[in-house]
Design a protein around this nucleic acid. Sequence first.
DNA 1: AGCGTAGAGATTGTTCAACAATCCTGCAAG
DNA 2: CTTGCAGGATTGTTGAACAATCTCTACGCT
Lengths: 244, 244
Amino acid sequence: MSISQRGDGDDEGRRAWLRSVAADVARQDRSSSAERAANILRRSITEGALRPGAQLSEIELTEVLDVSRNTLREAFRLLTHEGLLVYKLHRGVFVPELDEQDVVDLYRLRRVLEVDVVRGLEKRVPELPEGRLEPLQDDVEAAEAAALAGRWPAVGTANMRFHRHLIGLADSRRLDDITGRLLAELRLLFHVIARPQELHEPYIKRNRGIFELLAERRYEQAADQLQQYLLDSEQGLLDAFKSR
Amino acid sequence: MSISQRGDGDDEGRRAWLRSVAADVARQDRSSSAERAANILRRSITEGALRPGAQLSEIELTEVLDVSRNTLREAFRLLTHEGLLVYKLHRGVFVPELDEQDVVDLYRLRRVLEVDVVRGLEKRVPELPEGRLEPLQDDVEAAEAAALAGRWPAVGTANMRFHRHLIGLADSRRLDDITGRLLAELRLLFHVIARPQELHEPYIKRNRGIFELLAERRYEQAADQLQQYLLDSEQGLLDAFKSR
DNA sequence: AGCGTAGAGATTGTTCAACAATCCTGCAAG
DNA sequence: CTTGCAGGATTGTTGAACAATCTCTACGCT
């Protein structure tokens, strides 16, 4: 039962190979069956296959995902923590239905956190290495490309990543966690939107604008633009709710 | 099997009574054995019985808490999400050991969020009903009383509650969640402190000061004081780390 | 002696099947 | 129309079992 088809002399190389494979696997599904199941469910929810209000039956999902009930419940817990599922005792797990109040709540936090991150960059200019803004540039360009192709959900994803990377500039593990949750919940809200194009299209240019200001180290102006961006985006969602 | 011993005429009151009882029960053991186990573990950690770095053995705790391994692991998950436990794959769960970097990270978030809440009160003065500050007053007085009795851990608890109630003024579910986690992690940090008195004592007065300013609706000044409070508190923790 | 390695023992990761507790549905009685 | 009560379905919890992984000890080699 050899682990490789090479000769027996190259133990060092074999071990290195094993380590890299193990690292790859660990990167793909970070730890467990539960995480893998959670990943599948997360995609199903954020991409709209599981709509807000839907109930997730345990027995049904154990068959589809091929995991035990206990493992599935652990996956549920993971997603509950991200705000993508809610538990109702003795009734099951559901995809939450967010309302206008949640929009206000989410955007209130986004404004505080994101704007503060950008303003805080001023003091950290010396520490910020070159190329730190590259992920942001990639996201902007990905959004523009997706828009040209008319793939509006992809535009939304790219915009999300832009803001996640923006927050990442703060180098705060906890801030990254919080942002992950906030943006995940935001995706739930997008499902109430009939026409995703109108929702995402205006913000492609504005993201580029913010990126340019960051690249020029004009942080105050970037923060101001971001503030207004978030206010407008919130209003857009609230309008979508009213005209639903 | 009547639900009350009163006469039949007072339906409104009876329903209110029922609601309150149901709320009470729901508050006590909110959902499940897992939650109950998590509550016990949470207290054990925050009160120092389980110190940072300690490993939590599954078989040992299943006996102590009288739950099955699966349920215990669900409790572990809950606490992991609160930051009170960390999983090391195939090695078990541990009480995390935080360092100076975590202090900086935590306080960075605390400053942003708490100060913003206070500043935001300005715009919401008309909505804020009278008596909204009462919990804050109670916490200040509880801290003062505990200090007189020399019960410094209780002082720390009261101070924590003060800040939690302060955040509560924003009426944001998500902000409450985040704060709960931040303060829980903060408690882990307190355990590196040799003399809790020096850590908590100076802040009793300052909490009262902030409360008074809030009561007088001088929100800008309250926010300034709070900002300085948090900077000093952070520095105190960092000093405690260095002189350890 | 020092180093690396193999294997035993212990712990965690995952599954399964069963039972208890709770909720929902539909129907019957007042 | 409301109330109360089965019956069925779903979730909550348990215990046991096995697989996968880690830790520690003891052995053999240089």
